[in-house]
Write a protein that binds this DNA or RNA. Structure first.
Lengths: 204, 204, 204, 204
DNA sequence: CATGAATGAGTATTCATTCAT
DNA sequence: AATGAATGAATACTCATTCAT
């Protein structure tokens, strides 16, 4: 028992340190230029141990992407608690951006895009679960606002895409081309402007 | 003289065939997986000749990206000729998408994103000249519509970004993760919906 | 006492299952491509236990080869019981081939040959005890036939080699280059022809 | 012209030195344990050049084996010139052994046997062209002796195998298990004894 | 005494770039 | 000016063996 739990603990701690190292490496260098040996070095394990935990570079990368899904998602609380649609949407936009910039999702997205040729499933999967998945949560979010009559009844699938597009154009798209891009000083104004446009059409 | 001009012509024809081959290769395989030897083969020159014209893979890639700028741009005619803002904006959106999907710009963008780690200048340059440059043309386009009173006076820098964001979210973003993504059947409806939202706020 | 004998029994049963697994693995994949981890898995023990019993891969292999000697040998009964030399020699040839093909000796020989560079002693040992050892038994076999006047008096060391050579050329040599080689349909005719040649010289 | 022939010369000289180095390496260490880097080093070329000439380790090995076929073969002259069958067969046996021991064929055969699992085609090919091919030449050789009435008319396919088997059993088989095995002092006596047995059955 | 996770040395192969002709 | 053979550095992955529990 003691032995088994000891091993599990050690193994899990190694697995965790590998995933951290791999996350950093993939985010920093993309899939192709990330080196397994370097990941092993950073994680302070041997390459063989690396391969015991993750059978291949692709598998390791997939695991990293998979794990990132857990950190994605639009908290729905604001939709039910906020007094106005503007307040709710502001909150959603900020949650979204915090994830992108805080959890390294921008860098991960660049890495995924880099490998659409080599590992196409990962890209398609991310499109479905990462991109569209989050859009679905925005839909749910908007549906709730409609229900609360803070928004007009309308096709929220369409409007969710429009809202996400306006936000991403200003803040996410630039990071794809410039990894050093930071959220600009006028971030709040830009968000507000997007929300205003959105509400001009869909506001109650 | 005759000899010199003959050589220049030959040289330029080789340069052209190299750029065509390189464009295809980079769009097809991304920067990293494009092979110089294959580009040389496709262009029917030796690798040494390739390197005479372009000192390195990065330089060749930069040249390809540079050349792509010429094919970008929002034709302004519609802004002055269209009867309604909706008509003008529909035309602009379609012009934009034709470039992205017709001239291989989506694939090129993926290639650029792949190399933001290795060759950051190319990415930053594309962001400035490719992405923002085109947005500037949208600004000009919108300014003209404002001047013609087809749109309300407003901050067109902001609105141009919003318009571009709504269009790109539906059609360009997916191609980043799935190179096989094609324009969907409901393309026109999506464009119209985006324009409707835009006009709810900025329509005259 | 009881404990000790229990342990010995367990240990010996493990040792036996290891040897079975290793025999199969070595015969199937040769020395180099046989994997210690796979042997452990097949034998249902840990790699550490494997190494407790056999200090190294070479040692394990040597043990397998050693064990194979027990299954080699030319039954002498036919030499005293057969009515004719032909009958006796036919019996001996078939006994020999049954061992080669039935007990996996062909595969084992391939494995040994594979490792003559790495573990030369095993090869030399097999040559002495496996190959020449069996030839000695053929010598004894022939001596008996001479004694019974079914064969002429002659140098049986020489004739044993000749007899073995004729049989092996047709049936064993091919398996060295083609593991899937099976005993051909005309096996008996080939054996008979070899015996005829043998008897032309050494028949009484 | 000068350029082209210069390149061909350089290229062929490199190819030759690679094949020499590879032959030595494969004969010394077998297929698996031969290292491409070491072959390159011995041949005084880079590994990349190695791969320009031979697309893979398997291909290189096949080329070595292929080249060895050229050095195999039973000279037919003795069959028509010798005064007696014994003289002719003695000559053939010695030619055969000189090839095996002089041209490193024994070592090459060990290498091929080592790889029957990994590269089965090479083994089967060698069986067909190397082993059986030479036996066919022995058949031709014997047919000529029959025609000259130095041997009785008989099935020379069968007798060729028997003759080869008797010779190989004493001299070739041992080298499979012991790379250091040398032709023994009594070589000539063993050959003569084999021929005597052969002639007892097939002599005119 | 048994375990199995961890090790690290070893190897085939690729590709941007250069150089002798 | 053009060639294409040659380079060498770089990298994913495997496996016999050991060691902490």
């Amino acid at each position: 028992m003691g032995l088994e739990s000891y091993r599990r603990r050690v193994s899990e701690s190694k697995r965790k340190s590998i995933m951290e190292a791999a996350g950093a490496e993939f985010q920093g260098n993309g899939f192709t230029h990330a080196a397994m040996a370097e990941i092993a070095r950073k994680a302070d394990v041997s390459t063989a141990t690396l391969y015991k935990h993750f059978g291949s570079k692709e598998e390791l990368f997939s695991s990293i992407v998979e794990a990132s899904y857990a950190s994605l998602g639009i908290p729905q609380a604001a939709a039910s608690e906020a007094k106005t649609a503007k307040e709710a949407l502001t909150s959603a936009a900020n949650d979204y951006l915090n994830q992108q910039f805080g959890a390294g999702i921008n860098a991960l997205m660049r890495a995924i895009i880099s490998e659409t040729s080599g590992v196409p499933e990962v890209g398609k999967d991310f499109l479905k679960r990462g991109v569209n998945g989050r859009n679905d949560e925005v839909v749910t979010f908007l549906d709730l606002l409609v229900k609360r009559k803070l928004l007009k009844p309308h096709d929220t699938k369409v409007s969710a895409t429009q809202f996400a597009g306006m936000i991403k154009e200003s803040f996410v798209w630039p990071t794809m081309f410039d990894p050093k891009f930071k959220l600009p000083a006028n971030k709040d104004a830009v968000i507000e402007a997007a929300i205003d446009t959105f509400l001009a059409r869909y506001g109650a």
